[in-house]
């Protein structure tokens, strides 16, 4: 009996890691944009949804195998990120109180995207096939889709961390996040860095959407949940902290999975969010934020 519980626990930890890394992809989009612009992009959830939708259409209309729909998802979402930036962020962010306006304009743009999708295809969920099959490792069982998420999300996160830490663009991005005036003073094209950051954040968010959807189904409403989860993660981790976001997303996924052994899914998510609230009360700048 005890052995069985341990196995169940191990099973849920692996499942949770998978979904946590997926959350990390989505949450990093919020973190990176916050880093360079100090605003929360409330349209990000709908970008995630469009990523999943683009993958679905690529599979349905172009008959692409699932793996090849992922670049389509990232490209479509990345493009949408650029549009979102040019239409809803750039025109308002430099105005007086522009940062507060951006919360509203990105939220409004997200609503617009959501309503457009609802109007064009209705609210019904659609079946979304990922990688079929199940992998047995001893007593543990991992669906191939979850394994695939661990690999793709893990590699994407590593590539992203490399980009941020080791490349010229990453240095410019971090410089801008740390001191905007100094970044301009050394000749960094801050407008370009912000635009690329938006595109990149949206692309990995879209990829996250296309990886996440096969675990349940595609629904035009997946964006809201994705945004709320990502928001809780980045705030609790400490806004702007890249490593914190990744670590916290993994933790969030694992806790949520393990708690779903005893609670239902909704209660498990609520409990994790409650824990995040406690963290914020104890450490107002987040667990990994500067104290």
């Amino acid at each position: 009996m005890q052995w069985k519980i341990r196995m169940l626990l191990a099973q849920q930890i692996v499942n949770g890691l998978s979904i946590g890394l997926n959350y990390a992809l989505i949450a990093l989009g919020l973190t990176l944009v916050f880093g360079v612009l100090h605003v929360i992009n409330f349209g990000h959830g709908q970008v995630v949804m469009i990523g999943a939708l683009a993958a679905l259409y690529a599979a349905e209309l172009l008959n692409l195998p699932y793996v090849l729909t992922l670049p389509v998802a990232a490209a479509a979402a990345g493009l949408l990120g650029v549009v979102l930036h040019l239409a809803a962020v750039r025109p308002v962010v430099r105005r007086r109180d522009g940062h507060q306006d951006v919360l509203l304009t990105t939220f409004a743009a997200g609503l617009l995207i959501h309503e457009a999708v609802l109007a064009s295809r209705g609210p019904a969920p659609a079946r979304f096939d990922g990688i079929p099959g199940v992998l047995h490792v001893g007593p543990l069982m991992l669906t191939n889709q979850r394994l695939f998420i661990i690999i793709v999300a893990g590699l994407t996160l590593l590539a992203l961390l490399y980009l941020i830490r080791m490349t010229r663009f990453g240095n410019e991005l971090r410089a801008l996040a740390e001191n905007e005036f100094a970044a301009r003073a050394v000749g960094i094209d801050t407008g370009k860095v912000i635009l690329v950051t938006f595109a990149m954040s949206a692309a990995i968010g879209g990829l996250g959407g296309a990886l996440l959807a096969p675990l349940s189904a595609f629904s035009p409403n997946i964006g809201q949940g994705a945004l709320m989860t990502a928001f809780v993660i980045v705030v609790a981790a400490g806004l702007g902290s890249v490593w914190g976001t990744v670590a916290f997303a993994a933790l969030y996924g694992i806790l949520e999975s393990v708690l779903s052994l005893t609670f239902d899914q909704g209660m498990a998510s609520a409990t994790v969010s409650g824990l995040m609230l406690l963290i914020l009360i104890a450490r107002p700048n987040g667990l990994f934020g500067k104290a």
Binding site: N171, R174, E178, N179, A183
Partner: peptide, 15 residues
């Protein structure tokens, strides 16, 4: 106006 969390070398290369 240095970049406080970046290394001295990273600061220099941004110049």
């Amino acid at each position: 106006a240095v970049f406080p969390r970046m290394s001295v070398d990273e600061n220099l290369s941004l110049g």
